[in-house]
Amino acid sequence: MRQFSAVSGRAVPIDRENVDTDQIIPARHLKRIERDGYGPFAFEAWRRDPEFALNDNTYEGASIMLTRSNFGSGSSREHAVWALDGLGIEALVGVSFADIFKNNCFQNGMLTVELSGEDIDHLMDLARKDPQTEIVVDLPTQTVEVVGTGWKRSFEIDPFRKYRLLRGLDDISMTLEYVSDIEAYEHRRDNASFPSTAPSQQTNVRWRPTA
């Protein structure tokens, strides 16, 4: 996992509710077998809408994305996070995030910060009025700050998640430290009464496709 400590930069406001992952990265761009290369297709359909903030080049280089509620809803595609990463986004600050999307962000060292609707209103207003507004998202102190204004808010994060993000710990390596627990579980599990997908249990059934 990529380590995250703090990000300081400009913020692009995505002022829409329930932004689904089909908008963030459409399915037709999920054919790649790599983790990168999705940035150019991020929000593809909305890149023609002049009112959409990402089409305003004054936000170019923004490293923070401001979002509304239920951002990242729908499909579980992690490609959505890879696409945001491809845009140069390092942290998302919004009202709420869909469950699977939030997990996917965490797995990629992209911080999701949840603030109240009023706080997000305020940040979006600032970012719209002055796209140069500099925001600092700091994980060690769990704060979001607008540079030079004194505006500062705290956010909550699970301490264990925070610990892992700050160190960029690899989840798989961490879990493999528990391999003896996994083995013990497999030993006490009633294996015979759970299904197996082993090739030895399969009878291949071939067929002719529709021409």
């Binding site: 699977i100 996917n104 798989i172």
Partner: peptide, 11 residues
């Protein structure tokens, strides 16, 4: 997500 798929494959 895919990172979790990898986690399940491995563990």
């Amino acid at each position: 997500g895919t990172s979790e798929v990898e986690h399940v494959l491995a563990t």
